[in-house]
Design a protein around this nucleic acid. Structure first.
Ligand SMILES: NC(=O)c1ccc[n+]([C@@H]2O[C@H](COP(=O)([O-])OP(=O)(O)OC[C@H]3O[C@@H](n4cnc5c(N)ncnc54)[C@H](O)[C@@H]3O)[C@@H](O)[C@H]2O)c1
Ligand SMILES: NC(=O)c1ccc[n+]([C@@H]2O[C@H](COP(=O)([O-])OP(=O)(O)OC[C@H]3O[C@@H](n4cnc5c(N)ncnc54)[C@H](O)[C@@H]3O)[C@@H](O)[C@H]2O)c1
Lengths: 235, 235
DNA sequence: AAGCGATTGTGCACGCATTCACATGCATGG
DNA sequence: CCATGCATGTGAATGCGTGCACAATCGCTT
């Protein structure tokens, strides 16, 4: 179950020929690359040309050894005794993280969908929201952040026209599975789900979820626990 | 480094006297409890009184053994050959997840802050947003989802009056550290940060982050990678 | 009353991620 | 041109999370 590829294919895939990028970059590393990127862009703005793993670790709030191991997956080689070249790092991490602009479609234009549509951080990060769809016909035709809302029935057409590769689900929970199925039918294979619902997808589709209620409950647990252990009055 | 408590203290802390709740519930388990809860509430609505780990696993999209191990941390004992009592499970998971209502304060009432304020799922989950603060005085005094926006300078007062225990940061990235410091000064010790910035907090404060841009970038990486491996034309 | 089918509870092994520790190797200064 | 110092790159140890596999145990049927 680990892999059904041949050994030859696995070896060929171990590194890409041109760059030294290890092909399956660990998820944990992947999640940190954007953080490093932010720190790098920051120091680059200050005119700094090289950073040590130590410095980048401080900027990112992580361990220095972790930074070095992470960067080794990206293929970047630093210079011993000096550090890493900032520009090169930015370029190479940028290459790994979806190289170019990747347009996004949002399905469900309610409170959350609208907030996400207007988020300029997505555009800045190379993820412009180029399509919005909703099931509510009173919403269809409205313009939000420069994009006209289409009806969910036209999802396939809209996705094809705009070339969206990523889908964001912001419908109510009970519509989440339908929404996801629609996105997949439209050719989308990478989906971010905000609805608090368990949805199933075929193996070739990448589904990630953001569950805000769960985040609060985890915080609540710790808060709760702290108070139980340490009963101090606020007043 | 594993623990610097005495063995006696560790043993005393292993379980709370009244219930069989293992005290430090693993983070991974904790993150799944709300999912189980949703499935349980769903089947409870259908009048079902018992569930097997298998059934709950299917409802939650996880492995059955994982469900059983998770529930063992909660302290619930099922009946062999039968399953778990739904009502009891709901009650006991509810106990673990911050027992009662936990009010929340949101700092930064922009696009995202407003969407979160209006999210009824928080109220339903026992996390009512009872306070809103912003630095922009033109925002102060406005009413959003029944709550009047206060000035960030009054954060301490507002938190004290409303008894908020959880803080949500929805300010721009450059203000995130200031916002977090403010929350901590106001007595908040559990914080959820939406700003894409590295912030530091004292050890006793629990800080979680939700980084939407990173989520998209991880999806983008996989999409990117899939296309590189499998160059198929859309048209 | 006893066997049977079903489901729990958990020991165990495996893999991923984190972190330490240190040898390796480059740049710089004398 | 060589020595010195500093930061990289990585081997190895540890811990956490996952999932298999199975014995223990319960209710129900005969
Ligand atoms: N608002 C928040 O801050 C927030 C926070 C966390 C999670 N969420 C989750 O995000 C989702 C959206 O939240 P919201 O507050 O925006 O809800 P909302 O009710 O404001 O918006 C939902 C939108 O989805 C549309 N919709 C319904 N069914 C659809 C379908 N089949 N296809 C396309 N569109 C459809 C509706 O017309 C509506 O416009 C919910 O699942 C919610 O639980 C929201
Ligand atoms: N909008 C989204 O969908 C979205 C998505 C992902 C992440 N984010 C992040 O969430 C944060 C908020 O996003 P937004 O779109 O709501 O931005 P926004 O600019 O619409 O709102 C930010 C609000 O914070 C207030 N503010 C600024 N400094 C403050 C301070 N020191 N104390 C209190 N309030 C202060 C501003 O007055 C403003 O009202 C940003 O960091 C953004 O990167 C937003």
């Amino acid at each position: 179950m680990t892999t059904d590829r041949t050994d030859a294919a696995a070896v060929a895939e171990a590194t890409t020929p041109e760059s030294g990028i290890a092909d399956p970059i660990p998820e944990a590393t992947l999640a940190r690359l954007p953080i490093y990127m932010r720190g790098l862009l920051e120091v680059a703005g200050d005119g700094v040309t090289t950073v040590s793993s130590r410095r980048l670790a401080d900027l990112s709030g992580v361990n220095a050894a972790k930074v070095r191991k992470d960067l080794s997956y990206v293929g970047t080689r630093g210079t011993r005794g000096v550090g890493y070249e900032v520009d090169r790092l930015i370029r190479e991490i940028g290459m790994v993280l979806s190289g170019e602009v990747t347009p996004v479609v949002i399905i469900g234009v309610g409170n959350l969908g609208r907030a996400l549509s207007r988020y300029d951080g997505f555009v800045a990060g190379g993820f412009p929201v180029l399509a919005l769809v909703d099931a509510d016909s009173s919403m269809v035709g409205r313009r939000i952040a420069g994009v006209i809302v289409s009806h969910v029935d036209d999802l396939g057409k809209v996705v094809a026209e705009t070339g969206c590769l990523l889908g964001i689900v912001a419908t109510p929970a009970h519509a989440a599975q339908v929404a996801v199925d629609g996105l997949i039918a439209a050719g989308i294979r990478s989906i971010l789900n905000f609805a608090p619902a368990v949805v199933s997808v075929p193996a070739e589709v990448e589904l990630r979820k953001v569950d805000l209620a769960t985040e609060l409950q985890i915080l609540g647990y710790h808060e709760h626990r702290r108070e139980a252990a340490n009963p101090q009055q606020v007043a």
